[in-house]
Design a protein around this nucleic acid. Structure first.
Length: 225
DNA sequence: GTCCGGGACG
DNA sequence: CGTCCAGGAC
């Protein structure tokens, strides 16, 4: 498929999503640090359960790098219990604050200004932070023009014939980043809108009949009701 | 492929 | 009761 066709299609999908769902205004958080905590806690977890965990951390005055660093991992784990995988996530939070202190003197400001080619691998070096979480931090906390790929993104693209289940994370990310302007605001809304359509229509059992993206479906897609 | 995991929702 | 969730490590 010619590049321009894919480009027009990706832009068209975005416009239809935006028209249907309106602006999503991610990321819901009071601070940049809270965005990062949320990005870690929401891994394979419903957001409502993350909100409870963040509220508990705030109540314990641990919603900051020094607090997390000082708290015993077991206490942190209990506070974030509602978000699931709490032992792994508590360890990850402490590893991140250690990293932030060691590598960027505890300054999120400095971290977010670092070269992407350096910062992204650094984040991936933290156990518990994979590609999606790293890119969520870069985009939603750092305001960097990085496209976040998640399970919803994959499902929508597959059903519209733009990828397969074997397509690597980086290839899907490149699909968006090579065809769209490197605009953090656009990437922010686009990802959030893909989550919205994934929850509402592009479910495991799809609801294509009423989906705002049904116009783009491949004609020959017997699976899709 | 298997494990981590509580909570919302049906 | 069963399913699913803004994934990642081994």
């Amino acid at each position: 498929m010619p590049q321009t066709a894919t480009k027009r299609r990706l832009i068209s999908l975005y416009r239809h999503l935006f028209r249907h769902f309106g602006p999503q205004r991610w990321w819901p958080a009071r601070s940049r640090f809270e965005v990062i905590v949320g990005a870690i806690l929401t891994q394979n977890t419903a957001w409502v359960n993350v909100e409870r965990a963040i509220a508990a951390m705030r109540g314990a005055r641990l919603l900051n790098p020094r607090g997390i660093d000082a708290a015993p991992q077991e206490q942190l784990a209990q506070l974030i219990r509602s978000s699931g995988y709490y032992n792994m996530k508590a360890k990850c939070l402490k590893q991140f604050t250690q990293f932030l202190q060691t590598r960027y003197s505890g300054s999120l400001q400095r971290m977010c200004r670092a070269e992407l080619q350096r910062l992204r691998p650094e984040l991936l070096g933290i156990s518990g932070i994979g590609e999606e979480t790293a890119d969520s931090i870069l985009l939603y906390a750092g305001g960097r023009p990085i496209f976040v790929v998640d399970a919803y993104t994959r499902r929508v693209l597959e059903r519209h014939g733009l990828s397969t289940e074997k397509t690597p994370y980086g290839a899907i990310q490149r699909l968006f980043m090579t065809h769209l302007p490197a605009n953090p605001t656009l990437f922010n809304e686009y990802h959030a809108l893909l989550v919205a359509v994934g929850k509402t229509y592009c479910r495991k059992t799809p609801l294509c009949d009423s989906c705002p993206l049904r116009y783009d479906l491949p004609k020959e897609s017997p699976l899709l009701s």
